[in-house]
Design a protein around this nucleic acid. Structure first.
Lengths: 212, 212, 212, 212
DNA sequence: CATGAATGAGACTTCATTCAT
DNA sequence: TATGAATGAAGTCTCATTCAT
């Protein structure tokens, strides 16, 4: 609805920064959403962190929800792309490729900023199921499929044992996710070196548990 | 884990064991919180689902947040207890115990009601870090420790290969969690039989990936 | 959207007044809407005038617009009913009936409270065309039809000259409306006695209408 | 009454006689105000419809309210002038003059653009009483006085019956206003030819007014 | 114990107005 | 002149919380 006559607002304190704005706002939104959750985050906070007034945010995004969706989309796209590439490439030495993937994933996900989006998606998925689903399809399932494909090719090449490729993918990704969740969501503080962790994971992956 | 038992089914709808109330309210709270998230859930909804008026909820709980904390606590306690038992017991046949654990965990976590609390905790942890931490300490880390202990004893017994026990625990739990997350939080619909899944997981766990 | 944790509000100062509330609120709404117009009226004002807090208004009405619609409806219904009665009744002495109608209408519409709703409708119709249309159909056209019918019956009875009944109706109602508009909307202050006005109007009307 | 004339149709869209601007803006303002009402109209809309940026509007008008006042003033002035002329002139044949007035007024007011200002004034008068009053004094009362004067002179000339001149004026204008209001404000759709309507009105008018 | 009317803080969103460019 | 980014006041609506009954 509209309103009674407005008083003269004070002049803007800062001047335009052109079209970096949407991205800056999304950065701020990611930070605040991740910190407080979607609902508890106030648009004011986001605006403040982006160095803008509340109203300015609405110059670029229609609503708080649009902010969330735009954010997820921005974060999802490049990942999805990289994963697609991953899925297609890396076939000649499946073992080495898997090593690389595990090492990199372990390292990457250790970075709070990298895990910020997944964390947010997890928190928000109950309230916005399509966001969760979208993220799954474009990221989680993409990753799983990439690893499953890698496994299948490894089987064909005779370097991987015949097995349920989906289970393999979960065996590869699950532990990494579990660690990230404990650390970034549940506040675990344990300081294990990333490389050690990756090594231990790979070791188990390749050797299996049981003594033979 | 869900609704409290009613005494006489033919009894008037309004008379029940007075002390069942708090539990019924927590049941309702869990349902609504899980569905909508903590912030979006309205106390009114919870009251309604519990068959009470909003005001009545405040006879049993001081605040919405108290509802959340009480809920987590109620759900955490029995699990923590069971996990403690698990950690202490099951030493004589580590392989069989592990099989049992994986099978049961896979099965249990498939049930949306069982995963409701973890899901809620994940969603709420950014806003209430102590809740996340509490849950981690009493549940996640308990489970990890239990499995790690099992592994260590298995190593001593010569049935498990020497390895980083924490990594083993993650290898065991991670994939189960990953699957649950995809299903219950990210809305995945794939219908794989639980037992098949448990089997595949165990197979990989015991055999390792690489051909030897 | 929802929000951060709430502080404890102070207790309600007044106690329930049961189901007179909606009507009291509509009274207040009519007053404030008429005074300031729909947009400039603040729900707070309405609530205040009804002796309630802002929030309480929303216990009874979904939105400010619902308030407006509810209000119009409440005001329209009894008028529509009376007009319907008018249309059906008063056939035996068309001249006397017309005298009565003009006198009463002139008198009634002189009362600012009576003209408050038409005034509001006029102000609001551009923004809410259906409200305008609804009011027209149920009130304005009803009145016009009633008078036109009266004229037609008068013609049949031989007491009114043959003429376009719609034009007659406008000749009867138009001047009354014009006066009301000048007074209640455009702030005219002229103090002509209502009866004198009605007489002058009737005089002009009958000199043209009556058969000679 | 509407868009200002463009010089060369082939000229660049951006160059026009600089002083046409205010008028173009007022045209746009009238359109938007009439459509949505004063409060609901956004300065942005007005600017857009005038082919300018929001900021540019403020180069010509101090505020939204100034826009409204300037608009009313612009629309009022020529009418007021014409009415003054009407009042002074047209004395020799009062009957013919009245015929002319009724016919023209009926025709004119049928045009939505002509009635746009009265419609706006009606909608806005509750919020800005001075505007309503100003409009009444300069337009409504001018018109009434003109007709009343015409009547008086007609009485002196012996062609009109002795009567309350104000009532006569209302009898002349009221029906025309009523029809316009139904059509332009309350959305009535009836398609009666203007001339037929004027004739019917005049017929009724003269049968009562004329000396016999 | 239970109800539900009432409160009031607070958050989202809109938009008149300003001003550097 | 003209633009359009930016501000911030203000208003609608929601909902946790309270308390008379």
């Amino acid at each position: 609805m509209t309103a009674a006559p407005r008083k003269a607002p004070t002049a803007p304190k800062f001047r335009r920064r052109a079209d970096a704005r949407p991205d800056e706002i999304l950065d701020a939104a990611l930070a605040v959403f991740t910190e407080k959750g979607f609902d508890a985050a106030r648009v004011d906070d986001i605006a403040g962190r982006a160095g803008l007034s509340k109203g300015a945010v609405y110059l670029y995004f229609d609503s708080k929800e649009a902010l969330l969706r735009g954010l997820i989309e921005r974060e999802v796209s490049p990942i999805a792309m990289r994963l697609k590439a991953l899925a297609d490439a890396g076939g000649d030495d499946p073992q080495a490729t898997l090593r690389l993937i595990v090492t990199m994933a372990t390292q990457l996900i250790d970075d709070a900023r990298v895990f910020a989006t997944p964390k947010l998606v997890l928190a928000v998925a109950a309230r916005f199921p399509e966001i969760g689903e979208h993220y799954r399809k474009r990221v989680v399932d993409q990753a799983i499929d990439a690893i499953a494909g890698l496994h299948r090719r490894g089987v064909e090449a005779g370097v991987f044992r015949q097995a349920d490729s989906g289970a393999v993918a979960r065996l590869v990704m699950g532990p990494i996710l579990l660690f990230a969740m404990r650390k970034h969501i549940l506040g675990a503080k344990d300081k294990i070196s990333t490389t050690a962790r990756a090594e231990a994971h790979l070791d188990l992956l390749f050797e299996g548990l049981a003594v033979r």
